[in-house]
């Protein structure tokens, strides 16, 4: 047993040593200090917003590199903290809940103010945009009609009969199942782990594998499939303004001005339109859509 352990350790050490210098040679070393590494989460809207930030900064002559589609907040936030990425588009409410599970704030300005205080040392958020993209409990038109649902309150009597779908992390987030349970006393029959407001969740709703699901309010699929977004009177889902989360060291005045200018122009309607563009049949690349919008909005 001991010998096996030694052999394993040897292999690990050897491969680690062997890997290091080469991976540095491969252009993977920490970016030089004047480069801003822009990251994105694993869903198209985040990718698009990250491209908008990156292209705008690049347009001002700032050196940028992109690390797109990293994963969910649970994963990429570690990357923001360890310096793997410097800048990522965020949503105020969920980000606040991520750094402080107990945060009670729900209103847009309260969330923003609380978020500024709650962020760990070295990380800041810049100006928030008026664009909001919330998690929401979404059902199909048929299910809404069957149970006459308008708000999550209407759903409560039926929770125990229904299967809910969403990203795996929805099970643990305070603004996920735990929140629905605490505020509405709604516990679903079953939770089915799907994806982050993506094709799985949409398909799950359409074929009735799940009767209710977590989607994003700016998702074009909601409109395209005539899904019904249930109102959230008890505010499980706090205000979710799009804003840049950035490493303070990289936030020069020029960077701040550029990103703030974007937040000023970005509203919910714009976000909906941009998402619709992304979902168009010819599936344009996000960087193209980002550049077009930047050009049209004069940034």
């Amino acid at each position: 047993m001991k010998r096996i352990a030694t052999a394993v350790a040897a292999v690990m050490v050897l491969s680690a040593c062997g890997g290091d210098p080469l991976s540095n040679g491969g252009g993977n070393n920490p970016a030089p200090t004047d480069t801003i590494v822009v990251g994105s989460a694993n869903f198209p809207e985040s990718r698009l917003l990250a491209e908008i930030y990156a292209e705008a900064l690049a347009g001002k002559g700032i050196k940028v590199s992109k690390k797109m589609n990293i994963g969910n907040r649970e994963l990429y936030f570690k990357g923001v903290q360890d310096g793997s990425i410097d800048l990522i588009p965020e949503y105020s409410g969920v980000l606040l809940k991520h750094v402080n599970k107990e945060a009670p704030e729900v209103g847009s300005d309260e969330v923003y103010a609380a978020l500024k205080k709650a962020l760990p040392q070295g990380l800041i958020v810049l100006e928030k945009s008026s664009a909001e993209d919330k998690d929401a409990v979404v059902v199909t038109k048929q299910v809404a009609a069957q149970y006459s649902l308008k708000t999550i309150d209407d759903l409560v009597p039926y929770c125990k009969e229904l299967v809910f779908g969403g990203p795996p992390e929805f099970q643990n987030r305070p603004d996920g199942l735990p929140g629905l349970k605490a505020k509405y006393n709604c516990e679903f029959k079953e939770f089915k782990a799907l994806d982050v407001g993506g094709p799985l969740t949409v398909a799950g709703l359409k074929d009735n594998t799940v009767q209710a699901a977590d989607l994003f309010t700016t998702d074009y699929a909601i409109k395209a499939n005539e899904f019904v977004v249930l109102e959230d009177p008890k505010n499980v889902f706090a205000a979710q303004n799009v804003l840049p989360l950035i490493n303070e060291k990289k936030a020069s005045q020029q960077v701040r001005d550029t990103l703030n200018a974007i937040s000023k122009k970005l509203d919910t309607k714009t976000l909906l339109e941009l998402n619709q563009k992304l979902a168009a049949p010819e599936k344009p690349e996000p960087d193209k859509v980002a550049k077009e919008w930047l050009a049209s909005s004069g940034i």
């Binding site: 292999v11 491969s15 680690a16 991976s23 993977n28 690390k67 994963l75 310096g83 793997s84």
Partner: peptide, 21 residues
């Protein structure tokens, strides 16, 4: 396990080295 930065390519290189060996 390695505890290096999450986006370091070494995170993919090490498992593949192990498979190769």
């Amino acid at each position: 396990l390695l505890g290096v930065k999450i986006l370091d390519e070494i995170n993919v290189i090490v498992p593949l080295v192990i498979y190769t060996i």
